[in-house]
């Protein structure tokens, strides 16, 4: 019973924090992108525009929910849900910090420690892509359909590269559990041994979550928002939330796999700073990086994206895996 209460509480806290972070990541993105483009960004709602996410949320709620004629209604309604649910479920396996003692009870800082967490994440990110695919198809719109096709093709291509990249990390850690992978990085982070894998993972991850420069499924300039072109009100908001939830979970997963999770490098420790602080700081920095590169790189062309995925990322990932294996065998 205690276990059940603890789990429910943890799920509630993580869910709340995630949705809150999603809301404020949108504000961070708009502010920071604004600065990158030499403008102010939202600054009217509250001090420094801090109430902007609330205003956006209210606006989404009160907007008219338009379902166009001739859409496939059940799929049209289901698609945003399919997009959001896997994005949230991924967070269940992410360890945020060491265990802490609250009310004389040891509480682990993750919802569940799954033995196959890495594969679970790969699986769910694949399922999340169905949201964009089905949404684009069900809208009965040619731009929507093109966006849907691109989304599906891109996800499949980059998931392979991502999986291959992860194999080298899994080989080094000897485990598929994120908690154990983090625990193996108390002294040396994985990025020190696997810089190539780190770069590959970030590129594949950005493509997987459809972020600029890989945002082919919604490419505003050519597809006028692609898969979500017919969506309005809360349904559109769900797609939007899914995108940002994916971004946050990608940052958190990268921190766990490569940047030592809640650990500082070389076994350094700072007194009086809880370890979860380092985790949050790293995730924040990565999200800033994701926004920064969005403001920096122009969108790639579709064939360039496919070439990059299949002809560069995949072979490099396989060679990286091979080299890791050989070096590990030689060192023993």
């Amino acid at each position: 019973m205690d276990f059940l209460i603890e789990s429910v509480l943890k799920v509630a806290v993580v869910f709340g924090v995630l949705l809150g972070s999603v809301a404020y990541t949108t504000l961070l993105e708009r502010k920071f992108l604004g600065r990158l483009q030499v403008r102010h960004g939202p600054n009217r709602a509250g001090p420094f525009g801090l109430l902007q996410p609330l205003a956006d949320g209210l606006k989404f709620f009160f907007k008219e929910d338009i379902v166009p004629a001739n859409v496939d209604k059940p799929v049209f309604i289901l698609a945003p849900v399919i997009a959001l649910v896997p994005a949230i479920c991924i967070v269940a396996v992410i360890p945020f910090g060491d265990s802490v003692t609250i009310f004389g009870r040891e509480v682990k800082m993750h919802i569940t420690d799954m033995n196959v967490a890495v594969l679970y994440i790969l699986g769910l990110s694949g399922i999340g892509a169905y949201g964009a695919m089905l949404g684009g198809w069900a809208s009965n719109n040619k731009y929507g359909l093109i966006g849907a096709m691109r989304s599906g093709a891109q996800t499949i291509s980059y998931e392979l590269a991502m999986g291959m990249t992860l194999v080298s990390i899994i080989m080094m850690s000897g485990s598929l559990s994120l908690t154990k992978i983090v625990a193996g990085q108390t002294f040396y982070w994985n990025i020190f041994f696997q810089p190539v894998a780190f770069v590959l993972f970030i590129i594949a991850g950005l493509a997987e979550i459809n972020r600029t420069p890989f945002d082919m499924p919604e490419a505003e300039a050519e597809l006028a928002c692609g898969f979500n072109i017919e969506y309005s009100s809360m349904k559109f908001a769900l797609f939007f939330m899914a995108e940002y939830a994916h971004m946050i979970s990608l940052a958190a997963i990268t921190v766990c796999l490569f940047l030592g999770g809640w650990n500082l490098p070389f076994g350094w420790e700072v007194p009086f700073v809880p370890k979860i602080f380092w985790f949050i700081a790293k995730v924040f920095l990565l999200i800033v990086f994701f926004i920064w590169e969005r403001g920096t790189f122009p969108r790639l062309r579709y064939d360039q994206i496919m070439n990059l995925g299949w002809k560069w990322l995949m072979p490099i990932a396989i060679v990286n895996m091979l080299v890791t294996g050989v070096v590990m065998t030689l060192i023993g």
Binding site: Y120, L122, I127, A129
Partner: peptide
Amino acid sequence: IFAIQLMIYAGGVMMLVIF
């Protein structure tokens, strides 16, 4: 098997079928 079912069948094979 759970993770592979999600990844390969639900994520990959069905994606191609729907495609």
